[in-house]
Design a protein around this nucleic acid. Structure first.
Lengths: 358, 358
DNA sequence: CTGAAAGCGCTAACAC
DNA sequence: GTGTTAGCGCTTTCAG
C-alpha cells in the first residue's frame, strides 16, 4: 500500500461532516433530510448544497437503529411453492412481476424490497416470522398467495403491529390492506368470451386447490355457464395443479372423451399451454378444432403457437400499489388508514387460441 | 386501546434481555452469536437456550451500525435493459434465476440480496453508485451484464474497497471474483450439434451488440464452421437484439433468401422462439425443414412447440456461487482470496427443434 | 426556528 | 474466558 493513494475518499461522509460544511447542527441536517418543518429556506439550501457536494446519503442501518424505521419492506413467499418452482425450474411470472413492480415503487421512495420464504403451516411458522421480523424490523410486509389467506400469519402481524398488505387474497375481517383483482369476474369473462364465440361444450381445468384463486376462477366459470343456461357436461370439470404437466394430463382426460369439449378454459396460462401441446399431439388444431383460454397473461402466453387468449392479472401494479401504501403509512406514522381493499382492473386479452367452433 | 392487551409481547427482545436471562454479559451473548471463541460450553449452552426461549434475533441495523457488516449484498442490474424488459413485459429469466439462486445462498448465511438499477454509462453513474453504497454499505456487490464489463464501475468499487463479483463477463485485469461460463464453447457446441446432424447451410442470429455474450457466441459459431471447413454463406449472419420480435425479423430475412439455411442458431432462446414462429407462418416445418437452436435454456424453451434445443447457462448456480464467496470473504474479514474466475459448466440440451436436414 | 444531549442495539477494543 | 466501556450514525426528546 502506498502512503498516499491518489484519491482516498474511501469512507462515506457522515451527517457530522455535512453539518460542519453547512455550518449547522446535525439536527438541522436531519430536519432537511427528513423534510421536517422549521428550517429557514436559506439554511435549507446550505444544507442541501453540502449534502450534494459531499455526495452524502444517510446510512440505512443508522436510521433504522435510531428512528425505528428500516426503509425496508418484506415480501413473504410460500416456501414449498417457491422451492418447487425453483427445483423444476418453472417460470414464476407472479413473483417476477411482483418483484419489479414492487422494486420500482420502493425505489422512488428510497425503500428496499426483501424476499423471505415462509412455510406458514409449519410448526415453527410464528417463530420463523418473528425471527425475520425482529432481525429486519420491516416497515411493512407483503403477503403473497397462499400466505395471504393464512389467518395465523395475519394475526401475528397484527399482534406485532406490523402493517401488511395481502395480494390476491380472499376477504377477511382482519383490518389490513388488500390488493386483489376480481378473479371470479375474470373467469366469468373468459368463459363468456368462449360462449359468445358460439361454444356450448366448454371444459374447465382447475388449479391448485390450496390457492384461493383456483376456487374463485372455477366459481366464475360455473357462474357464466349458469347465466347462459349451459349445462356442465359430466367430466368437463378437471382437477389441475397450475403446472404445465398438470395441464397436459388434464387435457388428455378431456380430449379422450367420447364427446370432447370444443373449448377449454384453464385456470392459468401454464396449463393452457399444456392443453395446446396435447391438442397438437392428438392432431387437434387450435383454435379451429379447439379453443383455449388461459388466465394471468404470463409472458410465454405471447410466445406460444398460437398465442394465448387470456385474462391479465396486473401483479406488477398490484405490488406497486401495495408498496406505496405501506410506505405512505410508515412515513405518516400510521396516520394513513391502511384497512381497505384497493380496486384492481383485469382485462380479457383476445389472441389466437380462440375462435368459433367448427 | 385497551389498558391490558391479551398478549403484549410486541417489542422484539434485545441482547440485554438475553444476557440477563442467561446470567452473562452482553459481550458473551455477542460472542456466541458470532461464533467467536473463548466461551465455555456450559455458558454457550445457557446463552443458546436464552436466545431460543426469547426468540431473539439480533437487529440487522444495529449490527450494521456497530460492526460495519450489513449482511447485505447488492446486485446491480442494467437500468435501461431492465426498464425496457419491464415496459414490454418480457420475461427476464436471467434475473429470475439470479434472484432465486442468490436468495437461497444468502438465506443460508442470514444475508439478504438487494437489487439496484444502474445506468453505468450515465454522467452521474459514480455518484449514483456511491449513493447506494453509502446508504446500504453492502458487504459485497454482484455485477450483471453489461455492467459486469464496465471499467468505471469496477474501478469505483475497487477504490471504495467493496468486494464484487462479475457475472457473465469477459476477462479483465482488475482483481475481483468472476463467475462466467464459456460462452464461446457453448456456441461452438451448439453449432457442432447442427453440423453433426448433417447441416451445411447454417444461419446465425446475433444478440444485442452491447452485451459481450453476443460477441462470444458469434465467435463460437464461426469457430465451429471453421473447424469443420464450412463456409459462411453470404447473408447467413444476421443482427438480432435478443428479443422475440428481433428474432422474428431476422428469421424473415434469413428464410426469404433464395437459398435459405437448413438450420439457424440464435444467440438466445427468445430469438429462437421467434424463428419457430416465423417458420410456421412461412409453412416451414421445424425441425423437418428447418432446425433451430437457442441459447440460455429459459423456461419457455420447454413449453414451445417444438421444444427447443439449446445451451443451458446455469445462472442460478452462478449467482449462488458468487454470493457464497462474497459472504465468506466478508465473514473472514477479507482473508479469503476473491480474485479468481470460478468455473461454470454449461450443457447442450437436445430437444425437438433439431433434426437432420431433409 | 435551532441545538445539545441522550439513546437505539449492537460490536470492538481493551481490561480483568 | 469473561465483562466494561466506548462508540457506530442517526433520530428523538427537550431546551432555548
Amino acid at each position: 500500500m502506498s502512503e498516499e493513494p491518489i484519491h482516498t475518499q474511501h469512507r462515506a461522509p457522515t451527517i457530522y461532516e455535512v453539518a460542519a460544511k453547512a455550518g449547522v447542527s446535525i439536527k438541522t441536517v436531519s430536519r432537511v433530510l427528513n423534510r421536517e418543518p422549521n428550517v429557514r429556506p436559506a439554511v435549507h439550501d446550505r444544507v442541501t448544497q453540502a449534502v450534494s457536494a459531499l455526495g452524502y446519503r444517510p446510512r440505512t442501518s443508522a436510521r433504522g437503529l435510531a428512528g425505528g424505521r428500516s426503509f425496508t419492506l418484506v415480501t413473504y413467499l410460500d416456501e414449498s411453492l417457491t422451492l418447487e418452482h425453483w427445483r423444476i425450474d418453472r417460470s414464476n411470472p407472479y413473483v417476477e412481476r411482483l418483484q419489479f413492480g414492487g422494486m420500482m415503487a420502493c425505489r422512488e421512495a428510497g425503500y428496499h424490497l426483501l424476499f423471505e420464504l415462509l412455510d406458514a403451516n409449519a410448526q415453527g411458522a410464528e417463530a420463523a416470522m418473528m425471527s425475520t421480523l425482529s432481525a429486519l424490523n420491516p416497515d411493512g410486509v407483503i403477503l403473497t398467495p397462499p400466505i395471504s389467506d393464512n389467518q395465523r400469519v395475519m394475526k401475528l402481524l397484527t399482534r406485532m403491529g406490523t402493517p401488511f398488505a395481502r395480494l390476491s387474497a380472499i376477504k377477511t375481517d382482519i383490518p389490513c390492506l388488500s390488493v386483489t383483482m376480481d378473479e371470479k369476474a375474470g373467469a366469468f369473462e373468459a368463459t363468456e368470451h368462449l360462449i359468445s364465440l358460439g361454444h356450448r361444450r366448454i371444459g374447465f381445468i382447475a388449479g391448485t386447490p390450496a390457492l384461493s384463486s383456483s376456487h374463485a376462477r372455477e366459481a366464475g366459470f360455473l357462474a357464466a355457464l349458469a347465466k347462459y343456461g349451459l349445462a356442465l357436461e359430466k367430466n368437463y370439470l378437471c382437477q389441475g395443479d397450475y403446472t404445465y404437466e398438470g395441464g397436459k394430463a388434464a387435457a388428455r382426460r378431456l380430449l379422450q372423451q367420447a364427446n370432447p369439449p370444443s373449448a377449454i378454459f384453464a385456470a392459468n396460462d401454464e396449463m393452457a399451454l399444456g392443453i395446446i401441446h396435447v391438442a397438437s399431439e392428438h392432431g387437434v388444431e387450435v383454435p379451429l378444432d379447439l379453443s383455449v383460454v388461459g388466465f394471468d397473461d404470463f409472458q410465454a402466453a405471447r410466445y406460444s403457437l398460437p398465442s394465448l387468449t387470456t385474462i391479465r392479472q396486473p401483479v406488477g401494479d398490484m405490488a406497486a400499489q401495495a408498496c406505496k401504501r405501506l410506505i405512505a403509512h410508515a412515513a405518516a406514522r400510521d396516520e394513513i388508514e391502511l384497512n381497505q381493499a384497493l380496486p384492481v382492473n383485469h382485462a380479457l386479452l383476445v389472441r389466437d387460441s380462440t375462435a368459433p367452433p367448427r
